[in-house]
């Protein structure tokens, strides 16, 4: 059945599916920053990184959401401090003073939150798939990731219907009922989903094998996101920012004052 006789590439606008939005560059930055923040101690250096991470996050995340996430992190830190204060009444070793001692770990978490949000909310699933394709990962890593992204919307839809079926049977689904009978509620919700996933995975595997997947041929990457000038710019900027944080940590006159 020759179907390639009428090529009309113009019918497909590549921009409609163009993806990536520097996802790979952001992932790389995230990985590098994850390692750097553990090493850094200076609130100045970490603050510098946190400001940059916040700007990067704001390029993909609504301000309100970002503010909520940071507020939640701050709340958890304050809760930790409260617990620590209570324990310190019995154990003098836990008594610490100085706000920088609190600030440093908080800034570390803020950097990580900002950077991971910039990746997580930076692309639609189709763009993520294009970015993954562009990474040319080995099939055994690429395939599970593709399946995860592909199945999440279906799983959410399945879960909704399972929950509806439970509501029809008089089961209340709310935080209170989850707390009152956690094991039963989670069984009722998730056991049907496990069976569904087992079936879906089997059907997807059959379809994939019938299309020739896993037969040894190397997958070609049609419309895999390619690294562009924006990726280069972002990575270059990231390098400068990270170098700046090292300078602030060790060499900057201001760092000595902390």
């Amino acid at each position: 059945m020759p179907v390639s006789s009428a090529p009309s590439p113009a019918l497909l606008d590549p921009r409609s599916l163009a993806g990536g939005r520097e996802v790979r560059a952001r992932m790389l930055i995230c990985l590098a920053a994850s390692l750097v923040v553990v090493w850094l101690k200076s609130p100045l250096a970490l603050g510098w990184l946190a400001a940059w991470a916040t700007l990067l996050a704001l390029s993909t995340t609504p301000l309100r959401l970002l503010a909520k996430v940071y507020a939640l992190a701050a709340g958890l830190f304050l809760l930790s401090l409260g617990c620590g204060w209570v324990l310190a009444q019995w154990s003098p070793a836990l008594r610490q003073s100085g706000w920088t001692v609190f600030l440093t770990p908080f800034l570390r978490v803020a950097v990580l939150l900002g950077l991971t949000l910039s990746v997580a909310l930076g692309a639609r699933p189709t763009e993520l798939l294009a970015a993954l394709k562009g990474l040319r990962l080995p099939l055994f890593i690429h395939l599970p990731l593709v399946v995860m992204i592909r199945l999440v919307p279906s799983l959410i839809s399945d879960l909704r219907q399972i929950a509806d079926s439970l509501r029809l049977k008089g089961v209340r689904l709310n935080p209170l009922s989850l707390m009152a009978s956690p094991l039963l509620t989670s069984r009722l919700l998730f056991a049907p989903l496990v069976f569904r996933v087992l079936r879906s995975a089997e059907e997807l595997a059959v379809a994939a094998e019938l299309k020739g997947l896993g037969q040894g041929a190397r997958l070609s990457a049609w419309r895999g996101a390619r690294a562009g000038w924006r990726d280069g710019l972002l990575l270059g900027l990231a390098l400068l920012i990270l170098a700046g944080s090292f300078w602030l940590e060790n060499g900057a006159p201001a760092a000595r004052a902390w």
């Binding site: 395939l143 995860m148 999440v152 799983l155 989670s186 998730f190 989903l193 996933v197 089997e202 595997a205």
Partner: peptide, 17 residues
């Protein structure tokens, strides 16, 4: 493929749950 797909499917299910 069926093993890789199963890994992906369960990883997705764990995250959704």
């Amino acid at each position: 493929p069926r093993e890789l797909i199963l890994v992906g499917a369960f990883a997705a299910l764990t995250k959704v749950a």
